[in-house]
C-alpha cells in the first residue's frame, strides 16, 4: 500500500492529527500525548514573559521532531496577527503560523476579513499560513487567492467540544477548496474526529478534548486511532448505503416496454 502523505508547506506528514499545548493541568503531560497520538504538528501561543516570577517553559516539553505551529491568539486585527506572526518566526522555530483573529470574546468566532488580510501579507513574506476560519466558502476562496497553505474551518466554537456542528459547510469546503482542510475547534470526542476524516477532511486539530481528559495520553491515542480510522474509511470509499436490488422499475420500466430503440 502506498503511503498516505499529507503535504503542507512542503512538509510531508504521516499523521493527520494536530495537537495543541493549551489547557493542560501540567505541561509535563505533553510528551506523553505527543507519543501516544503520533501527532507531528503542535500549536503554541506567544505571550509576554512574566519578568517578576520565572515560570516553566512549555518548549521544554515539546519533542524535537514536532513541527511547531504558533498561533496568533490575542490578535484582534490583521495588523496584530501579522505582528505576532513575525515575532513567532523570530523565535527561530520555523515559519508556520496559524492565523487566528478574534475580536468577539463572547463567542470566540474568527474574523474572516481580517484573517484574509493577514494571510495575504504573511504568505507574501514566505510564511506557511494556516488560517482558522468559520467554514465560509467565500472566505476560503479568498484565502486560496491569498496564498494560504491550508484552511482550518471550525467544527464548533472554540472550546465547546460540541462536535462537527458546521458539517454541511465543512463538507462544501472539502469539495470546493483545493487546499488541505484541517478541522479545528469543536471536536470533543474521537468519534467526531473520525467523522470529520470520513467526510474527507485532510486533518484534525484537537487540543482541549485531549488536554482536559483525565488521562490525556490515553485520549490522545484514541484520537490518533480515530483520525486514522476515519481517513481509511474515506480512502476506501463509502460503499453503497442502499442495496442494489430493486423489485420494480417505476422510473425506467418504459425502456422495456414496446419498441425501445
Amino acid at each position: 500500500m502506498t503511503k498516505d502523505i499529507l503535504t503542507i508547506g512542503g512538509l510531508e506528514l504521516t499523521s493527520r492529527l494536530f495537537t495543541g499545548t493549551g489547557k493542560y493541568r501540567d505541561d509535563s503531560l505533553i510528551p506523553g500525548v505527543c507519543e501516544a497520538s503520533g501527532s507531528q504538528v503542535i500549536t503554541v501561543a506567544l505571550r509576554r514573559v512574566d519578568l517578576e516570577s520565572g515560570t516553566g517553559n512549555v518548549m521544554d516539553f515539546i519533542p524535537r521532531h514536532m513541527r511547531l505551529l504558533p498561533n496568533t491568539s490575542g490578535a484582534r486585527t490583521a495588523d496584530e496577527a501579522v505582528r505576532i506572526a513575525r515575532l513567532a518566526r523570530a523565535m527561530g522555530c520555523g515559519d508556520w503560523i496559524k492565523i487566528e483573529v478574534i475580536s468577539d470574546n463572547r463567542y470566540l468566532l474568527p474574523d474572516g476579513y481580517e484573517t484574509a488580510k493577514a494571510t495575504e501579507i504573511l504568505a507574501n513574506e514566505g510564511f506557511v499560513v494556516l488560517p482558522y476560519i468559520n467554514p465560509d466558502l467565500y472566505v476560503a476562496r479568498s484565502l486560496v487567492d491569498a496564498g494560504a497553505a491550508a484552511v482550518m474551518p471550525l467544527g464548533a466554537p472554540i472550546g465547546t467540544n460540541r462536535g462537527i456542528r458546521t458539517r454541511e459547510m465543512v463538507r462544501i469546503l472539502i469539495e470546493e477548496i483545493d487546499l488541505p482542510i484541517v478541522v479545528d475547534a469543536g471536536i470533543g470526542r474521537p468519534s467526531e474526529a473520525c467523522e470529520a476524516m470520513e467526510m474527507g477532511a485532510d486533518a484534525c486539530l484537537v487540543n482541549t478534548a485531549i488536554a482536559t481528559a483525565d488521562d490525556p495520553a490515553m485520549m490522545a491515542r484514541a484520537f490518533g486511532r480515530a483520525v486514522r480510522a476515519g481517513r481509511e474509511a474515506f480512502l476506501s470509499g463509502p460503499g453503497a448505503r442502499a442495496g442494489m436490488a430493486v423489485a420494480s422499475s417505476p422510473l425506467t420500466g418504459f425502456l422495456d416496454a414496446g419498441t425501445a430503440a
Partner: peptide, 10 residues
C-alpha cells in the same frame, strides 16, 4: 520593549 515567549495554546 516587549519580551515574549511561547506558552501553551491551541
Amino acid at each position: 520593549l516587549e519580551v515574549l515567549r511561547f506558552v501553551g495554546g491551541g
